[in-house]
Amino acid sequence: MEISRHWRLKKQRYALIGEVCPHCEAKIFPPRDVCPECGDEAKTEFAFSGRGKVYSYTTVQNAPQGYADAAPYTVALVQLDEGPMVTAQLTDLGSQKVEIGMPVEMVTRRLRSEGDQERGMLVYSYKFRPAEFQRLAVAAD
């Protein structure tokens, strides 16, 4: 069982909680103890908006163990509006074609079952879907 390694990351996984560097204001995700921009210590929590754009994407046909139920699935590099890039699955694509530059928004979804498919702990994580409800995205800017 790998409960603890998922459990300790729950804040970032469920809600994209990262850090802001108190020295240079850089937004940091995933959280790390040293700011990648200025090299100083950074431990101040920062909640990302979850909005971003697709930097690149691909579809995984040969899924590793634990991901076969979802295959084929789309994984992307997503550039968050606040700066950092993350690797994450795209979801709720329906028949929509993915394109580089496409605006996406974070949702919290089921990622996999830890260990046994029926009996294992459920791992939840950020994923991204095509940005919906443009009315709200405009209002937030």
């Binding site: 930097y55 590793p64 699955q89 990622l111």
Partner: peptide, 25 residues
């Protein structure tokens, strides 16, 4: 990176595909 790449279902092949997609773009 187990916590931030592999956990999302990424494999080395898929990672290379991400670079290839971007390269062509």
């Amino acid at each position: 990176d187990a916590d931030y790449e592999a956990v999302h279902g990424l494999t080395p092949t898929a990672q290379a595909a991400l670079l290839m997609q971007r390269y062509f773009h």
